[in-house]
Computed example of a mutant assay.
Amino acid sequence: MGSLFSKSATLRKNVRISDEEFVQLRDFIYEKSGIFVDAKRKYLFESRFSKRLGELRLTSFAEYITYLKCDRGEELKQLFELVTTNETSFCRDMKQLEAFRDNVLREKLDEQRKAGRLELNIWSAGCSSGEEPYTLAILLLEMLRMEISRWKITITAVDLSSRMIERAKAGVYGEYAFKTTPDAIRRRYFTQVAEGWKIRPEVQRLVQFRQMNLNDPLATKRIPRSQIVFCRNVIIYFDETMKRRVVQYFYDNLLPGGYLMVGHSESLHKISQTFKPLFYAGAIAYKKEE
Rank of each mutant, 00 (worst) to 15 (best):
L260K: 02
D159M: 09
L260N: 08
P277H: 07
S265N: 07
L206M: 13
L160A: 02
G116M: 11
K7S: 05
L160C: 07
C127A: 08
L160W: 06
E107C: 13
E202S: 09
E75R: 03
I165L: 00
A281M: 01
A99Q: 08
G34P: 02
A283F: 03
A168H: 00
E111L: 15
D216T: 09
L109I: 15
F45H: 04
T220R: 12
N213D: 10
F275W: 15
Y237D: 01
G116S: 04
K169M: 04
I271E: 00
I155G: 01
I148E: 08
K221R: 15
K13Y: 12
T156K: 02
L160T: 10
R167G: 00
T85G: 14
A137S: 09
A194F: 03
A125Q: 10
L139M: 14
T66K: 11
R245Y: 04
K152H: 11
V234M: 05
L120G: 08
Y286F: 06
L118Q: 11
L254R: 02
S226K: 11
Q78K: 13
V23N: 12
L118G: 10
K179V: 09
T10P: 04
Y280W: 09
I153Y: 01
S267R: 07
E119N: 11
S128W: 06
P277I: 12
A184R: 15
K169E: 08
K69F: 10
E119I: 14
Y30E: 14
C70L: 09
G130F: 10
E31A: 11
G116E: 05
P224N: 08
L79K: 02
E46C: 13
H264G: 06
D239E: 08
A125T: 12
L58S: 09
G171W: 00
P182L: 12
S47N: 08
V37R: 02
I17Y: 01
Y189S: 07
G73S: 04
I185Q: 10
R245T: 05
L144F: 03
L214M: 04
I148V: 13
K270Q: 15
Q248R: 14
R57Q: 15
G34T: 06
M143G: 07
E142K: 07
V234A: 03
D110M: 14
D102W: 10
G263A: 04
L139E: 15
K270W: 07
L25H: 01
R210L: 09
Q211A: 08
K270Y: 08
Y259I: 10
Y43K: 14
K95F: 05
R106N: 13
L278Q: 11
E132C: 00
E131C: 09
S226L: 10
E31P: 04
G171C: 00
